[in-house]
């Protein structure tokens, strides 16, 4: 199931946020969307999930345009993890994760249990969400997405505001999903995480694709200079790179 967008243009509050953007995303990859603030990363992610209507262009899943798809079919195929960790009511972790089954219209007890287990939340299943730490809440919210067993996971800065241990724990879960054939698309601010953990990086600048390719190429010092306006170089070995900004 290839997720692709063609000539995507999005206007938000009178401002063109994405212009004429095209890309094909492959299942089984972790694709990172990077770019400076306001480059259009979150907008691209929302458009890929058909959560906003583009001005022009189309998003397709296996060649089928998303707007023509039934919302529940789309929801079963594409799981979306928003940036805000908002949970309106103090439900238990198990009930929170169960929300992921809504598009399937079933109880999905086995899937819920599996999702809770893959996020290492077994001991927290009956805990009210208000008693969780930030990292635990992030894991519970990811488990909610996994419970729907989507073919695609779109996550908007899932690692922001987490300590490094939780960042790695969440990345490991996402990597396992990608290895099982799920397409994972992450908006990432931390370029080192994108460099070391993504299979592919899209760099956006002012709503356009500045670079698209393997992390080493897409996040080259030249592209970082063009995308963020800072001069930087990579230190260390492939897979364990650190960004040195000067």
């Amino acid at each position: 199931m290839i997720l692709s967008c063609e000539n995507l243009s999005v206007v938000r509050q009178g401002k063109r946020v994405l212009r004429d953007l095209s890309c094909d995303l492959r299942p089984g990859d972790i694709t990172a969307i990077c770019g400076a603030n306001g480059a259009g990363k979150s907008t691209l992610l929302s458009a890929l999930g058909n959560l906003i209507a583009p001005e022009e262009g189309t998003v397709t899943l296996s060649g089928k345009p998303l707007p023509a798809m039934h919302p529940l079919t789309r929801a079963r195929n594409i799981g979306y993890l928003p940036q805000s960790a908002e949970i309106g009511w103090d439900v238990s972790v198990a009930n929170l994760v169960a929300l992921g089954r809504l598009p399937h219209r079933d109880a999905g007890a086995a899937e819920i249990k599996r999702a809770i287990h893959s996020c290492a939340m077994d001991d927290f299943a009956q805990r009210p969400v208000s008693t969780l730490s930030g990292g635990e809440k992030a894991r519970a919210l990811l488990a909610r997405v996994l419970a729907g067993e989507p073919q695609w996971i779109l996550a908007d800065e899932p690692l922001a505001a987490l300590d490094i241990a939780h960042q790695l724990a969440l990345l490991r879960v996402l990597q396992a999903e990608a290895e099982s054939g799920v397409g994972v698309v992450l908006v990432l601010h931390d370029l080192a995480l994108a460099m070391n953990h993504a299979d592919r990086v899209l760099v956006l600048r002012e709503g356009q694709l500045l670079a698209d390719g393997a992390p080493e190429d897409a996040l080259s010092p030249e592209n970082i200079a063009a995308g963020w306006g800072v001069s930087a170089r990579w230190l260390g070995e492939p897979g364990a790179r650190a960004l040195m900004v000067s």
């Binding site: 959560l51 919302p71 799981g79 979306y80 949970i87 929300l99 729907g148």
Partner: peptide
Amino acid sequence: GRSLDALTLGEEAARSLGVN
């Protein structure tokens, strides 16, 4: 009720779960 449950996660997430 089911749609209201989905709204627990905010409007955007609810729409991603198929809520109209």
